[in-house]
Amino acid sequence: MSATPSDRRIRTVAMLVNPAAGGGRGERIAERAAARLRSYGLEVVSLRGAHAQESLDLARQAVADGVDALVVCGGDGMVSLAVQAQAFSGVPIGIIPAGTGNDLAREYGIPLTSPEDAADVVVAGRAEQVDLGQATPDGGEPRLFASVLCAGLDSAVNRRVNEMSILRGPLRYVLASAIEFPTYRPRPFRMTFDAGEPGEETVETEVLLSAFAITRTYGGDMRIAPDADRSDGLFDVCYVGRISKPRLAWHFRRIYSGTHVGLRGVTTRRCRTVRIDAPEVEAFADGDAVAPLPVTVEVLPGAGLFLVPG
């Protein structure tokens, strides 16, 4: 992992806020974090878009204006939105966790329960350069992501989670999995890995769920890619083929510890790019919808910059 000490003192912060995050707690969490940052003498400008595109436009403008850090108060989806504005800019992203899964905050060691402690990382932490992923639907616009792109049962669960209004935090993923699992069936996938490179390979197989990971976890701390290195220039890929429902249910808990790797029916590999195609399957990245397949995914080495504990 590439750790880069910040070459400038942070004086101005743009805080991108999702007021609805955390079941409506996002606004209160943002206020506490902003107060902490101001107590250090930082100038904090709040960015609150009426919708995702407006929030992205505000973030891009803040980066263009030369803000010292772009701080996100929200969940993984809000961080994903921020990297669209931040990539390759040299402006670091700080995270104030306020989402459902908060997998990116966990990955970067950000305190989950105290906005003040998370704000302290923005002030006293270091900037770490990491990889990002880019997903491009056929005929569509590219979309950057910071953690995991998934397609299959896991993306169907993500869709269900985003539509739920009950429960908080990772319990939503548990309930959504219980709802989707009994009726979801494997789909015929065609995956072309590292097209145009010496190791190019096309795999055609039935897939129940699949993940293409920059970081280790998704779905509220499920360790789908336990060995992923966020700065090695590669995706850690994990996909599950046709497997009996009782066997999958029995082993499901092992995803939380990462010990599913090596089980019969679980395939892992690494790649720089992959084109994924399957009927009636939607790709999700960082917890939000990308597009129906086919989608081409590639690693952007060193494109991201995050503030992490020093």
Rank of each mutant, 00 (worst) to 15 (best):
S89I: 10
P97L: 01
G99V: 07
M78P: 01
G90R: 02
G74M: 14
G66H: 07
V91R: 11
I93H: 09
A98F: 11
Q86V: 01
V63H: 00
P97N: 07
R106I: 05
A62F: 02
F88K: 15
G109H: 11
M78A: 14
L58E: 04
S89L: 04
M78S: 15
S80L: 08
P92I: 07
A52R: 13
Q61A: 15
G99F: 12
C73H: 05
A98C: 11
S89F: 03
V83F: 07
H51L: 01
G94D: 12
Q61L: 14
Y108T: 05
P111Y: 04
A82R: 02
Q84L: 07
G74Y: 13
F88H: 15
G77P: 13
A82F: 08
V63D: 03
L58Y: 01
L81Y: 10
Q84Y: 08
E54Y: 05
V79N: 05
Y108R: 11
Q86M: 12
L70N: 05
A105G: 08
R106F: 01
G109Q: 03
A98D: 09
V79Q: 09
P111S: 05
I96N: 10
L81R: 13
S89N: 10
I93E: 10
D103G: 10
Q53R: 15
A87Q: 14
G77T: 13
V63L: 04
V91Q: 02
A82E: 05
Y108S: 03
H51I: 01
L112P: 03
D65E: 14
G99C: 06
L58P: 06
S55Q: 14
I95W: 07
I110L: 10
M78V: 14
